[in-house]
Each structure stands twice: as structure tokens, then as C-alpha cells.
């Protein structure tokens, strides 16, 4: 019995060798080229190295794709955690500002107020509590910023085209809403267009509302920055290209500059309508 990568692999099928390269182990190396020739796996050294080459190339490509795919799960958790941190920080901030308003004269509103309070020097037991509470909220805000930085660093490697097109945070949100990069890649672009608008979609299906034109992609400048009557077209164009970006990221991982140029052209056409009408 041998632990060699080619043991049990089909000499004519690089895929079976690739699986063995990825999952096999041995306690020590051996003269594998000679063993392979003896075992009849390869005709000679040259043939052996050619087979080894196909198997290692296939194994490395598959392993890379798999590992990078697993990164999408990390992105999805990170963006959800970022939203939790932000929402909770806002909740704490409300309490802090309200409470601090009973102790201090000049409390700025919102998150600024929280940072302001956290930096103060408490003089009484009550002040000590409110300053301490504000400090927790500030920590949470810092955590949110760290999570955002993590997403901004990771998204471009996990999904280069999606991250470029949507921006890292929206890319992570789309991945999270779809349940992973693979499921995002498999969704029709009409679904991508309304991801995050599930409530509105449900109401529409129940006959209680018009169909939603966009979900989270509304936060994208291409949609938000387009005049209301053209937003439907903008959302459709963006969602179409985002779906293609997700597919390229999932299946090949190459960065495709032309995809981004095409979308920019399409958006320019849509936005030109407003100028044309203004000219008329």
C-alpha cells in the first residue's frame, strides 16, 4: 500500500488525481516518480510529470475557488453584525442623550452627543453611570467601523466585480440577503433588483401594493441619484449587471473592466433622458 497521490487515481482522469492531491496525506515523501512508473500509472518520468501537472493545476484551482467561496459566509456575517452594531449603538445613543440631558446643559444630539458625553469627566455617581454607558455605545460604534473596514478589505478579493460595481458594503449586503455568493449568482436579475424589499414584494403579491422597483440596491448612487421616473430603468440596468458580476465572481473570479464600462454607458443613456427633456 502506498500513500502516493496517484494511488487509486485514474491515470486518464486529472480530476480524480486532483481530488487525491487535495485530500491525501503521507507521513513522509518517497520517490513518487519511480513508484508511479513501477505501478504502471505513468509510462516514464516525462509522462509522470505531465500527469502531476494536470492534477496539481486542477487541485489548486478548485481549492482556491472553494476557499474563496467560503469567504462569502464571513462577509455575510460581518455585514449583519455591522448593521446590528449600528442599530444598537443608535438605541443606546437615544438613552444616553435623553439621560445626559437631565444632568448637563449642552448635549449635542445623536451619535455626536454620545461621543461628547463619553469624553466627559464624571463628578457625581449619576454622571459616572451615564458616561460609562456612553462609553459602551462609543465602543460599539468603533466596532461598527472595524467591521466596515473588514468588509472593505475582504469584499474585493471575495467578489471583485460585485465589490467594484456595488461598493464593498452593498456587495456584502446582497450576498447576505441572497444567502451566499453562489445563490446570488443563481438568482435572476429581477430578484436581485428587489432583494431586501421582501415585505413590499409580499404586499404586492397579496394585491395590496404596487410591485417594488428596488430593494437594497436603492442605496446605490446609480438608483438614488437618478430622477424618480427613471429609477425603475436604472434599477433594472444595475441589477442586470450586478447579476452578471456575481456570476463572474462565483464561476471565474476574473476582474472584467468592460462590464463596468458597459454599465456606466447604460446609466449615461438613462440619465441623458432627463437632459433631453429639459432641452425640449
Amino acid at each position: 500500500m502506498t500513500d502516493a497521490w496517484f494511488a487509486g487515481a485514474d491515470p486518464d482522469d486529472p480530476e480524480s488525481g486532483a481530488t487525491r492531491v487535495r485530500t491525501g496525506r503521507a507521513s513522509a515523501p518517497a520517490d513518487w516518480p519511480a513508484e508511479a512508473v513501477d505501478a504502471g500509472f505513468a509510462a516514464d518520468d516525462t509522462d509522470y510529470y505531465a500527469k502531476l501537472r494536470s492534477a496539481t493545476l486542477a487541485a489548486a484551482s478548485e481549492a482556491v475557488a472553494e476557499r474563496e467561496r467560503a469567504d462569502d459566509v464571513q462577509l455575510a456575517h460581518a455585514v449583519r453584525a455591522m448593521d446590528d452594531a449600528e442599530r444598537t449603538a443608535n438605541e443606546l445613543a437615544e438613552r444616553v442623550v435623553e439621560w445626559a440631558g437631565t444632568l448637563y446643559e449642552d448635549v449635542p444630539r445623536g451619535l455626536d452627543g454620545v461621543r461628547d458625553i463619553a469624553a466627559r469627566d464624571p463628578k457625581t455617581a449619576a454622571e459616572e453611570r451615564v458616561v460609562s454607558y456612553a462609553t459602551r455605545a462609543v465602543d460599539l460604534l468603533d466596532e461598527r467601523d472595524d467591521l466596515r473596514a473588514f468588509i472593505e478589505e475582504r469584499a474585493p478579493t471575495t467578489a471583485p466585480n460585485l465589490a467594484e460595481m456595488a461598493g464593498p458594503v452593498l456587495a456584502a449586503r446582497l450576498i447576505a440577503l441572497a444567502g451566499g455568493l453562489e445563490s446570488l449568482a443563481k438568482k435572476p436579475s429581477g430578484t436581485v433588483q428587489v432583494l431586501g424589499a421582501e415585505d413590499a414584494l409580499f404586499a404586492h403579491l397579496k394585491g395590496r401594493a404596487t410591485s417594488p422597483k428596488h430593494g437594497v440596491i436603492f442605496t446605490h448612487e446609480y438608483v438614488r441619484g437618478t430622477r424618480p421616473q427613471d429609477r425603475g430603468s436604472a434599477a433594472r440596468a444595475l441589477a442586470g449587471k450586478l447579476s452578471i458580476a456575481a456570476r463572474i465572481d462565483h464561476y471565474s473570479g476574473d476582474y472584467r473592466p468592460d462590464l463596468h464600462d458597459e454599465l456606466a454607458d447604460r446609466m449615461a443613456t438613462i440619465r441623458a433622458r432627463a437632459d433631453e427633456e429639459a432641452d425640449e
Partner: peptide
């Protein structure tokens, strides 16, 4: 190294 000793030759 055991994770690639079945691929990398000795010597």
C-alpha cells in the same frame, strides 16, 4: 508537510 508529502518527491 504531511499534507503534501504524498505529492512532493523525496530527494
Amino acid at each position: 508537510p504531511e499534507s503534501y508529502a504524498h505529492v512532493v518527491e523525496s530527494g
